[in-house]
Amino acid sequence: MERFRYFLQRTVFSMKQSPLLCSATIGTVAIALMLLSFFTLIVLNVQNLTKQWSRDIQVVVYLDQVPSQTVLEQWLEEIEQYPEVEQVNYISQQQAFERFSERLGQNKDLLDGLMPEVLPAALEVSLTETARSREGTERLISLLKNNKEFHNFRYGQEWLDRYDAFIFLLQLTGTLAGGFLVFATLFIVSNTIKLTIYARRDELEIMGLIGATPMFIKAPFMAEGAFQGIIGAILALGGCHILYYFFLKKGLAALLTTAAAENIHFLPLIVQIAVIATGLLLGFIGSLLPLRKFVRI
């Protein structure tokens, strides 16, 4: 208990006593994590956006003849069992005609004199999130082809290719830039902490001379690093929120439609907790690495 109190006192005391070094560490963690958080925020929102787009990925099976109710129910049941299928809807000729008419808008009178039977009935098959790719779509079509009645498909091949390429690019950019940012953050933070520890190397030497064990010497420094990391992470989240509000929420709202701007969200709570945990770890590991070099008994 005495030791715990000593460590706590040392942590608070040394932060109060070296405000400049302490601010340098907190500031470095804050800036580095703010960049990382903002990057994560953008990646998550783009992912969210693409997830919304991907809902439009569906396979439409045009039917040559209108099936009887019994046959239709059989087909629906069969298709729903495929692992790639999220939902399947039957679009009757009447519904297809109404949709087409709606889509024509002011020109819908072009359809005057035409009967709904001119358009084929169809099955609209939505894919599960994991199957929303060219590969998943083709897998589903090969399954659908098991039924001889299904041979006329439409699934926007070109759009799917572009979507796949975009997702690949997004993942590649996210991984490379994210990885780079994580390493840059660790590098900058650990070097800043190394400098602050270097400035206090006399203290480390004296502690060693008076019989302090390596852990006794390191503990207050690691606690200090972890605490500064948490404060830095909280500041980073605050800064990230300001960037989000002014650049994404307000800035993009002027460029995009209101609905699109409303779909841009701040980091979810779990990610915010992860950012704070990252700050804690950065401070802790950032202190531990140089301490291993400086604390040699």
């Binding site: 006593q17 004296i206 001379l209 008076i210 019989g211 064990t213 006794f216 008994i297």
Partner: peptide, 24 residues
């Protein structure tokens, strides 16, 4: 080992030319 060196040093007092005091 490191830990035992620390324990050994608890039986030794040190005085240096440059005092080695913590000035803060």
């Amino acid at each position: 080992k490191s830990r035992n060196i620390a324990l050994l040093r608890r039986d030794i007092g040190f005085v240096f030319q440059d005092f080695k005091l913590l000035n803060n």
